[in-house]
Amino acid sequence: MLNKILISIPCYNEAQNIEKVILELQSDFSVADILCVNDCSKDNTLEVIKNIEGIRFLNLPINLGYSGALQTGFKYAVENNYDYVIQFDGDGQHIASEAKKLYDKLINENLDIVIGSRFKENSGYKHGFFRTMGTKIFIFLIKLFTKQTITDPTSGFQVLQKEVFTRYSKIHNFPEYPDANLIIEMLLLGYKIDEVPVKMRLREFGVSMHGGFWNPIKYMIRMFYSILMIFINFAFQLKK
């Protein structure tokens, strides 16, 4: 039987990007079903999605943020019995043909999560200063606690197998930024995670959720806190 693959794309105000993203996916990775999760966009993202042939879409009645929309996709995948979920960004950063590389690695090496990494090989992708520093710190933390090197913990380009996204779909208060914190937790739980070097583009239109001066700092503080809570939880569980 063929594996059922779902490409889940959380979209918030991506009217200008989304059509191109989907058309690219349909031509370069046609074996998968495509799901757009419209996170109550203020622009006409919904209308754009509605008019695209051959995709599924969910329309959230209230804005749940990136992670809420992402989790909705996982719930949809569980409900519709998918075997694999590919997280894909709606802003055009991720390249459709690279999705196959991630998926193939997951299948061939029997992994649980495969992350598309911009930094495993030099792909020429550049972050701002704060984000580069932050990423370096998170790489160090992951290495310190799990002995594994994850070069791009903030990459949203991931393939997950069924057990993983089923687990994610059930988490209450799913973390607002599901990055290094979730990776550390899943590694500690014994899931197999690896990376594939991928190329990514810079976004063409719209605003990144990590843009500006204040957002990266907020992100860092929350991420540290989230990682700390994971360790506290683990320490308690070990005692039990």
Binding site: R56, F57, L58, N59, L60, I62, L64, T72, K75, E79
Partner: peptide, 10 residues
């Protein structure tokens, strides 16, 4: 509820 609503609506 919002997630459930979106999935059911689909």
């Amino acid at each position: 509820l919002a997630q459930r609503n979106a999935i059911l609506e689909e």
